[in-house]
Structures are given as C-alpha cells and as structure tokens.
C-alpha cells in the first residue's frame, strides 16, 4: 500500500512551483526597496552637495555666508572626539568582555550583568546625553569639552563594543584554550597568546562599526550643548569643539536655501568618513580572519 499517490503529486506540482516563485519575488522586492531608497538618498545628496564640495569647504571655518562656509572645525572636532572615544571605549569594552567571558563564574550576578549590557545597547542615545550632561559636564566640571563629549559617546557605544568583543572571544574554539592550558599556561598567558590574537579581528570590526555610530550621533551632543559655530580648533581635550553631525544639523535648519546645499556637502564628508571607517573594518575582517 503506497501512501503517496503519484498522480496527485503531479497534479499539485505546478501549483507548488508557482508558490515557490512568488515568494522568491516578494523577498527580492523587499531587498530592492532598501536599495532604491539608499540610491535615491545618495543621488539627492550628491547632486545637491557636490557643487559646494571644494577645497575651501574643507579648509574654511563656519560662516554666515553659504559660499564661505566650511567644515574645518567640525571635521577636526570629530577627529578629536574619536581620539577620546576610541581608546576609552575599546579598552573598557574589551576588558569587560574578557572578564565576562574568561574569568566570571556562571552565577546569577554575572547573568544579570550580561543581560543588562545587552539592554544598555538599546537605550536611546538622548538618555546617554542627559547622563553625560549630569555627570561629566556638571558634576566633574569638564564643561562642553572634547573630554565630556568623548566620555559620553564612549558610554553610548560601550555596550555595543562589549557585546561584539564577547562574541569574538566566544568564537575562539575551546580546543584552543585547552591546548594552551594543557601545556601549563596560565589563564593570562592563554588570553594574551591564544584568545586575543584569534579574537582581535572580530573585536576590531565590532569596535570600528561602533565608532562609526559614535561619529554620526547628534542627540547626546545636542543635550550636552556643544556649540555650533566655532572659529578655532580644539587644542586639548578640555577645549570646546564642534562635530560633523552638529554642523550639518545647524546648516540644515537654516532658512537660506543655499545652506541646504552646504549641509548636503557636509553629509558627503560625513559619509566619506563613515565609508572609510567601514572599509577598514571590512579589510581587517578579510585579512585576519582565522579558520579552525
């Protein structure tokens, strides 16, 4: 007795194949939608901003006149910001990840910490801005400085870096650690010589992507009260500064139409920086990826 009737199967075959095609088309449509949106956005910005994107634009300070306005202070300010955010967030983040993955025992407290770090990654950036304003700007008295903004941004991306580093450390096969322990290596030697070398590509990729987020964030800077029009460059971490997204935001809200084009040029610069950082991440990932 056969349970599968061949004629029935053949009758349904064309219908099944049709459904298969329909679903494939729908998924393809979803992908194209995202791509088209991105393309339109890029087209608008490039056509608007390309005319204003001159050498002067990169070397001039901000100005009341659209033709004279430049992005120098914001670009350099953003780089200063990164100079604070990168070391602070990576050192704290990787350290935390190593502790959680390699040292922390599996108990309720550590489970609670792990869960909350993931939750922290979902907290809106403006909340971090308020935190930075209260703690760094007011309590510690850093003012509207690179340091205050940098520390705030570090807090913002710290959970992302911790989670990325945890993933990278967890991806190192246990056999590797066992091989090291089996030869009498201490935990520290094993971490430095086996775990970190294998995890660094993952950690760096995650960190750079997190930094990319930090460089584009506006909300915390607005809350802290970073100035917009500056005619000088920061000289130390305690100097006042401005950053790319702040500058773009300021231009975009001005009434003069030309400033919209200036803002578009600023966006091109910001995107160039972002693409540059992302390509470093991709490069590191491809170059150092280990197989096991």
């Amino acid at each position: 007795m056969k349970y599968i009737d061949d004629t029935l199967v053949m009758k349904r075959m064309s219908k099944r194949l049709l459904y298969n095609k329909i679903w494939k088309f729908l998924f393809f449509l979803a992908t194209t939608f995202a791509l088209i949106t991105l393309a339109v956005l890029l087209y608008r910005i490039v056509t608007q901003g390309a005319g204003y994107l001159t050498a002067d634009f990169l070397t001039n300070f901000a100005s009341r006149f659209p033709a004279k306005a430049g992005i120098k202070a914001a670009l350099i300010g953003s780089l200063w910001l990164m100079a604070v955010v990168a070391p602070v967030s990576i050192i704290l983040g990787v350290g935390t990840a190593i502790y959680l993955e390699e040292y922390a025992k599996k108990n309720k407290l550590n489970d609670f910490i792990r869960m909350n770090i993931s939750n922290l990654a979902g907290v809106p950036s403006i909340v971090f801005g308020l935190l930075g304003l209260t703690i760094f700007v007011r309590t510690f008295g850093f003012g509207k400085s690179v340091l205050a903004a940098g520390l705030t941004m570090s807090l913002l991306i710290l959970p992302v870096i911790i989670v990325a580093a945890q993933e990278a450390i967890r991806a190192v096969p246990n056999e590797q650690r066992e091989a090291s322990y089996g030869m009498g290596a201490t935990k520290w030697q094993t971490i430095v010589r086996v775990v970190l070398p294998a995890a660094i590509p993952g950690i760096l990729t995650g960190s750079i992507l997190a930094l990319s987020r930090a460089i584009g964030e506006t909300a915390p800077l607005v809350v802290i009260g970073i100035p917009v029009i500056l005619q000088f460059l920061p000289t130390s971490v305690f100097s006042e500064f401005t950053a790319l997204p702040m500058q773009i935001y300021d231009w975009a809200k001005r009434p003069q139409e030309e400033f919209q084009y200036v803002a578009a040029a600023g966006i091109i610069v910001l995107m160039a920086v972002l693409i540059f950082m992302n390509s470093i991440a991709v490069f590191i990932r491809n170059k150092f990826q280990k197989r096991y």
């Binding site: 056999e175 066992e178 091989a179 086996v194 070398p197 096991y292």
Partner: peptide
C-alpha cells in the same frame, strides 16, 4: 602533556 581528540594546532 595532553593530546586531544580533534587536532587543535594554534592558527600560527
């Protein structure tokens, strides 16, 4: 010393 089930050289 110990030798494991799956060959586990370091990626070095």
């Amino acid at each position: 010393g110990m030798v494991f089930q799956k060959p586990n050289p370091f990626p070095k």
